[in-house]
Nucleic acid binder design. Structure first.
Lengths: 143, 143
DNA sequence: ATAATAAAAGATAAAAAACTCTTTTATTTA
DNA sequence: TAAATAAAAGAGTTTTTTATCTTTTATTAT
């Protein structure tokens, strides 16, 4: 579905959104433990997310990652598009380049509905909307 | 979504279902041209599908691939499970091993509905049900 | 029997994805 | 201003996926 990189990215950003809510930066160590991801791999991913503007960072003591007001408004669809592209939202289930209404693959009609639902779900979820449920332990990001 | 191997496998089996309807075996050359897949890769995949019983084959002149009565009843879900496993139908969108009703990830509740629809779509599609639409050029398997 | 045909098997090769390690740069605080 | 901290950057490595090539085996028709 999503690449591993994208799975970790989504989990990391939701984690940062919740942990930095009070204005405190979140370090890599806290993040990789909090979402149970390989430390140096998540470091690389955070670097990319920062470069692409999906998260913000500061170096040095008390440094770490956080989300500015704009980044808090991002949706999960924004993350997926940035990391995996929009193949998931527009591509053919059977990998055909020309698959469309006028040249459909056998699954096209049914698949496009599901693809659309997936897109809607991710477009309608902001990265910060899970903060309270996470804090209450009703939703989880590791294991 | 599906692995490339699985995409080719589905396209190949649907192709064989249609072309072998009249009892004539379909050769590798006809298949790889018919679904626009790399020849030696699709040969390997057909080999695996044959070993796993999803298609049948005969060697030698007039040989090739076909589907017996049982194989015609297989669904696309059967192919996906055989090639990619059932991760797509049961796995967590964010890659969490323990994600479930009792320990859900942030996407669990919404994702499980979509996952289920995907499963239903594939379970309710037999490999032979596209034969006439393909023959009429209403559905496509290459490009 | 022999030649021709076509898939099976086995062994590699290339490319992409997942993951690691080391060095550098920026920032803070003592 | 020096030491400590923490992310950025760069350069690998490993694993998995995708793809290719060669040889063998089975079947058919001459």
């Amino acid at each position: 579905m999503f690449s591993k990189t994208c799975e970790y990215a989504i989990r990391a950003i939701i984690f940062i959104a919740q942990k930095s809510e009070n204005g405190v930066n979140v370090g890599i160590k806290e993040i990789f433990k909090g979402i149970n991801a390989p430390e140096s791999f998540i470091a690389k991913i955070l670097q990319e997310l920062s470069r692409k503007g999906l998260i913000q960072s500061v170096k040095g003591p008390n440094g770490g990652f956080f989300l500015d007001e704009e980044s808090k408004k991002n949706t999960l669809a924004d993350i997926v598009k940035t990391i995996d592209g929009d193949k998931l939202f527009t591509g053919c289930a059977l990998g055909l380049k020309n698959c469309s209404e006028i040249e459909p693959c056998p699954l096209h009609d049914e698949f496009k509905v599901i693809r659309q639902q997936m897109h809607n779900m991710l477009r309608n979820s902001t990265v910060a909307e899970f903060n309270t449920e996470l804090a209450q332990g009703l939703k989880h990001l590791k294991r």
